[in-house]
Amino acid sequence: MSEELLRLEDVRKVYGRGRGEVTALAGVSLGFRRGSFTAVMGPSGSGKSTFLHCAALLDRPTSGRVLLEGRDLTAASERALTRMRRQRIGFVFQSFNLLPALTVVDNVTLPLRLAGRRPDRRLVDDVIERTGLASRRRHRPGELSGGQQQRVAIARALVTRPVLLFGDEPTGALDTRTALEILGLLREAVDTGEQTAVVVTHDPVVAGHADRVVFLVDGRVSAELTRPTVEEVAGRMTRLGAWGELAG
């Protein structure tokens, strides 16, 4: 399907007041099609993290609108937003955010329990199998490698069958080989699971797996690439004058 799932309209985010005022997003307008994988890149301070937080309504914009399936979420109550995030949105972060006392199965099913939903055993088994965790079901995070922990985080994000999947540097703490395996899982989630993925990253290899790359500079959309290669992404970053900052 080609229609937009998520849309940001002239989103601005300003922190502080007076002399201490900082504009993190300066009027961002972007649409995201269903079943697409978008990478968001930019130098430090470009607004990437703020963009993700506003797009997911973890943080409300100062002005502008965020629409999910045509519904203006900026007008929703905090309770409604919490319910929507639990039911419609999945998150994968660099730090995994697993509970150390819980097993793999319990970490994966935690979002369902928080939402008051009884886990569908067949669905849980399928997600655990797809993410390569079948032999680790009863292990706790401390007994897993970094890559395995990120697999748990992805399984946890997918178990609610979200329409939208956000990633914040999801491969940043992983070695290259493991990062590629995790990227393959995210790509598979988009291609076969009807998810729409939006991933913030500094890594051209991650961006090379995306359908589209959006570049932010000083809180504004600076450029876009469609179906980019790793070399094209790296070249564009160099022209933005940001590569040195990202590599440093």
Results as ranks from 00 to 15, higher is better:
2 S>Y: 01
2 S>F: 00
8 L>P: 08
11 V>D: 14
12 R>M: 06
12 R>K: 14
14 V>L: 13
18 G>S: 07
20 G>W: 03
20 G>A: 09
22 V>C: 03
23 T>V: 15
24 A>Y: 07
25 L>E: 13
25 L>K: 11
30 L>A: 14
30 L>M: 13
35 G>T: 10
36 S>D: 11
37 F>A: 07
39 A>M: 07
40 V>W: 07
50 T>I: 08
51 F>G: 08
52 L>E: 13
60 R>G: 04
60 R>Y: 12
68 L>M: 13
75 A>T: 15
79 R>H: 07
79 R>D: 15
83 R>L: 08
84 M>R: 11
85 R>N: 10
86 R>C: 03
92 V>R: 09
95 S>W: 03
95 S>G: 06
96 F>M: 06
98 L>S: 08
100 P>L: 03
107 N>W: 09
107 N>P: 08
110 L>A: 14
111 P>E: 13
112 L>E: 12
112 L>C: 02
116 G>Y: 03
117 R>N: 02
119 P>E: 10
119 P>M: 05
119 P>T: 09
128 I>P: 00
128 I>R: 05
130 R>I: 00
130 R>M: 01
134 A>T: 14
135 S>Q: 15
139 H>Q: 14
141 P>Y: 08
143 E>P: 01
145 S>I: 01
147 G>V: 05
148 Q>K: 04
158 L>K: 12
159 V>R: 12
160 T>V: 14
161 R>A: 07
164 L>R: 12
165 L>M: 12
166 F>R: 12
171 T>E: 07
174 L>V: 07
175 D>P: 00
178 T>Q: 03
180 L>Y: 02
183 L>A: 09
185 L>H: 05
188 E>L: 01
194 E>A: 14
201 T>I: 06
202 H>E: 06
204 P>F: 03
205 V>E: 07
206 V>H: 06
206 V>S: 04
206 V>C: 06
207 A>R: 09
208 G>L: 02
211 D>C: 00
213 V>P: 01
216 L>W: 09
216 L>R: 13
216 L>S: 11
218 D>F: 00
219 G>Q: 10
225 L>T: 04
225 L>V: 02
227 R>D: 15
229 T>Y: 02
229 T>G: 14
231 E>W: 00
232 E>W: 00
232 E>R: 11
235 G>H: 02
235 G>T: 06
